[in-house]
Write a protein that binds this DNA or RNA. Structure first.
Lengths: 216, 216
DNA sequence: GTCTATAACTTGATAGAC
DNA sequence: GTCTATCAAGTTATAGAC
């Protein structure tokens, strides 16, 4: 029965550690259920994981799960929302009161990458299992995703306006930048020979170049 | 019962058309089964799709499927292999006898993007359901994937050597470039306001900038 | 809170008629 | 080739004892 912090390796991802953001995440048995589901959903997908497996991984009987979550879908919904909340919260935090568009893009990319290295399993679940949720359960996460995308768009648009960036299509640039960051969750792990900081710094450099950054 | 060419919209992807590469793909009923599975796997995932749904979408009874494929996993295996083969074949084709690293990277990114726009559903299945396959069935696709990645690495490495590119870590650059291209399959579709060519040209520009391209 | 037991249903796959 | 019928196993979720 894996507990938070256990190594986890299977299927679609590099070896990774089962961790969730602190503070906003349930503790106790409910927290163990969430961590167990995180590892399993990341490795095998929502439909590839059974309630019984989640229970076993959390060290309880599958029936006991229903004392904490009234359906399997609600476990996924909580994970997906935690993932989107954490990313959006940290993106907001890093650009708060940063006026310069170049500094803003730098901070956004750096944070985006670090969230994907630090919570790689959560990122994989958040990005690749969201589609399983009903429209109602997916809505809040989709809103957060759109808000995060808007932060990137704003930085790029402002930078083009003041001449820091050189782009003919900021939307495509925003998609390219977020795409390269999103994939980090799929290959980054403890077995890696890059540190989280190295990846973040490299990707910041890539994003600035991609945006046509030049000194004004 | 959707047939090849039908529009398809659900869950994790933009509206897209169910198409497979011509020539190398089965025709007749076997082809219809493959197209049906492609649309369903892309939208709901392998484990989220039942044999009965595939049969219904192909216009035959689920039992009849087993005359063409002896297991559900083998349908996925064929799709995933077709996807990896098509990408690798077209990448090889575009760089054949191209000596200049800049031209090679340009061709690789352009083709990579176009394969993801033209076969977006296949790209989604190929990238996000490969992990479901047993090691034996996944092996040939993984080999093709590694070979494709090597083409990018070679172009970048050669470009750094002759001074066309400026990179301190070609592996991270290759991952960033392939990451931004891979995501194209998830958002590109007929409802889009960019053409396939616009996306390809923009991403080529992004990749060259990212690689630190400069005239020699 | 946690368990055993089980209901109600769906799953992948097969047998055998036509 | 295609179907109907069916199997055995697995699924989510619930009822009720402790």
């Amino acid at each position: 029965m894996p507990v938070p912090g256990d190594q986890w390796q299977q299927g679609r991802l590099a070896t990774a550690v089962v961790v969730l953001p602190e503070g906003t995440t349930p503790t106790g048995t409910r927290g163990r259920v969430l961590h167990a589901a995180l590892g399993l959903f990341a490795a095998r997908g929502f439909h590839g994981t059974s309630i019984r497996e989640i229970g076993a991984a959390a060290g309880i009987n599958s029936a006991t799960l229903y004392g904490y979550y009234s359906s399997k879908e609600l476990i996924l919904a909580e994970l997906v929302l935690i993932g989107h909340r954490e990313l959006h919260r940290r993106l907001l935090e890093t650009v708060a009161e940063v006026a310069d568009p170049v500094e803003r893009l730098t901070a956004l990319v750096r944070t985006h990458v670090l969230v994907h290295t630090d919570f790689s399993l959560l990122s994989v679940v958040t990005n690749s299992e969201l589609h399983v949720l009903s429209a109602e359960l997916a809505a809040p996460s989709l809103a957060l995703r759109a808000a995060s995308e808007q932060l990137r768009l704003d930085a790029l648009t402002d930078g083009v306006r003041d001449g820091s960036f050189d782009l003919s299509d900021v939307r495509l640039a925003a998609r390219a930048i977020s795409g390269m960051g999103q994939r980090v969750g799929n290959w980054f792990g403890p077995g890696q020979d890059h540190t989280r900081e190295q990846v973040a710094e490299a990707f910041v450099c890539f994003a600035l170049r991609l945006a046509g950054h030049r000194e004004r």
